[in-house]
Design a protein around this nucleic acid. Structure first.
Lengths: 337, 337
DNA sequence: GTTGGCACTCACAGCATCGGAGTGCCAGTG
DNA sequence: CACTGGCACTCCGATGCTGTGAGTGCCAAC
């Protein structure tokens, strides 16, 4: 690929992103000091179009980048744009003072949306090295028990289970047996440790024990945190296009936790900042959008993914820089606390 | 107010709501068997317009209702439209199988959005008769403690506190003292019960006890549940109008938990189903929308508000019926336990 | 390979036209 | 006195036409 053609493509992308209008050869030469005449640029454009990187909305209009064009732009051309001082400061102060995990996640979403001016998506961190710190049983009604699992990261999960009528003593004993077996054991091994426990229970406790342990298993075996938080939906306004066909499906997708999770998971699975442009996206509803996602945290501690969704025509260099910066900052913050 | 004029207003509202287009005298007579001629209707319309109930977008166009017109319609004319069988069935089965409170709320939002085809807002129930069932302390790090409060409704609140380095025994003792004092006491009285406890602590426990009790107090004194859940944002598509000026501000408002809470609170404060039409709404961003809100649950148990936000031009009778039906159903479900 | 020139295309804005839905008013009627 | 039919009037919105200009593709020349 000719070096100048890359320059041309880059110029087209940046101009189109900032103006939202097809860009022609003349305007391009004027704004970018390419050192060649419009006619030459036209020839390059013809080639770029033939190869599928750009297209014209209609004959005798300027060119706009295709998804493939953006892809090449992102892969080969975009130099990282450093963040502005204001952005750095915003990121640097946004999390200080965050109390618990909920708070951190909530703040991160706001921060990300604010810095990128896009829709922000943040997944709750998964703590892989988590150990079970304590199991508590609380009697709510005579026949209903609350099972609470506290993990070393401070996370608390709860769940009610129906049980046969029981005495406080029975409950206390079951609780002690369970705690004795699993306290300070890694969460992922808890299942294996609980199974043998069932067999050791004295007869009068089997019913209760089975119910509690089943509940506890569900508590620890459900994928740790399959929650995502979305923010900055207002930024969809930047789409500009008509609501019905463009924005409605996106809103729909944003309400589907499952979709978002898979999206983040697939995109950030590689362990690196990833960009999914337009039709590269596996979900129909999001094929007019691009996704920038990245993992954050550290794999041997707390980690998950975060990212943004925006129109294909977005400022990739600076948005990518912002997403990366936020991810790094949150990672550092998590490591400290 | 003339009886026939009310009929005319009612006809205008219903026709406009279903067609989204200004309605003229002729079409009105044809569709509604008023038993009078278009000319007569025109006279009535002129009066209605003078009194501010309807208006014309431009000379020589049909009439559309004003906010004041909708108000009168809602207050005096709308007969409750019974729900369809399908709707009844949807409502009747939607909650069965809900596990915990989170689940109930999440399902209710979806149900409400689906039945009304509007944006649904549900506030978490506030349990006023709640008693503190159990307090648990879990050591996370040597200098960090997790305080967990379990209430009789099954709600679990947690919070970390920083403490001087402590022994397991100290923690256990503090825990026992606290539990001894507050277990099964109404949440609202816990603050009073904890204060004297502080003075009775032996010297070596004061530092720890103070930290824990302070944390616990914050846990139980923060307004019980100031959370709201929003769903069905896709239904904003029904607005039809241009995005920038109409929908963007609404989306913004929907992201502000505080705004939503006040909105629901103010509207449903009267204890009845309440309708806020267009400019009756205290929030600028929502003045192109109407709000239908109602309390649910029962005041001496768990209660809160829920409602929907939609375009001013909505089908008030059936939407009101749906909101009321969902509220009643959720109330019943909560009462059962 | 690059350039200037030139004919060609086509969206878009502006303008005029026209039909029709809807109104307000008025005189007539039971 | 309330209602009605008739009529002139208004004005939005659809339709069609035109001119303009940005932009292209191609070609011959450097």
């Amino acid at each position: 690929m000719d070096d100048r053609k890359l320059q041309v493509l880059r110029a087209i992308v940046t101009d189109y992103v900032s103006s939202q209008e097809p860009v022609g050869s003349k305007a391009l030469v004027e704004r970018h000091r390419l050192g060649v005449s419009p006619a030459t640029v036209r020839n390059d454009m013809a080639v770029l179009e033939e190869e599928g990187y750009i297209t014209q909305p209609h004959t005798s209009a300027g060119r706009i980048p295709t998804d493939k064009g953006y892809r090449l732009f992102v892969d080969r051309i975009a130099q990282v744009k450093p963040l502005s001082v204001a952005e750095r400061r915003a990121i640097g102060t946004f999390l200080s003072g965050a109390a618990d995990l909920d708070d951190i996640v909530a703040r991160t979403v706001r921060l990300l949306a604010q810095v990128t001016h896009q829709v922000a998506i943040v997944q709750y961190p998964i703590v892989s090295t988590e150990a079970l710190r304590h199991v508590e049983l609380v009697v709510l009604h005579p026949e209903r028990l609350l099972v609470i699992a506290v993990s070393s990261s401070g996370r608390v999960d709860q769940r009610t289970v129906e049980v046969p009528e029981v005495t406080e003593d029975d409950v206390a004993e079951v609780k002690n047996r369970i705690n004795g077996a699993v306290v300070d054991q890694p969460v992922r091994e808890v299942a294996g440790l609980l199974a043998p426990l069932l067999d050791e229970l004295p007869p009068h406790l089997t019913a209760l024990g089975t119910a509690v342990i089943t509940g506890l298993l569900q508590l620890v075996s459900t994928e740790p945190d399959t929650r995502v938080v979305v923010g900055g939906v207002t930024n969809l306004a930047r789409f500009g296009a008509d609501f019905e066909s463009t924005i409605a499906p996106v809103l729909e997708a944003l309400e589907e936790q499952v979709v978002l999770l898979r999206l983040l998971g697939e995109a950030a699975g590689g362990g690196e900042l990833t960009v999914r442009i337009g039709q590269e996206n596996p979900y129909e509803q999001l094929q007019a959008t691009s996704l920038i996602a990245t993992p954050y945290g550290s794999p041997d501690d707390a980690w998950a993914s975060l990212g943004i969704v925006g129109p294909t025509r977005m400022d990739y260099p600076s948005t990518m820089a912002s997403v990366r910066a936020v991810a790094r900052y949150v990672s550092r913050f998590l490591a400290q606390g």
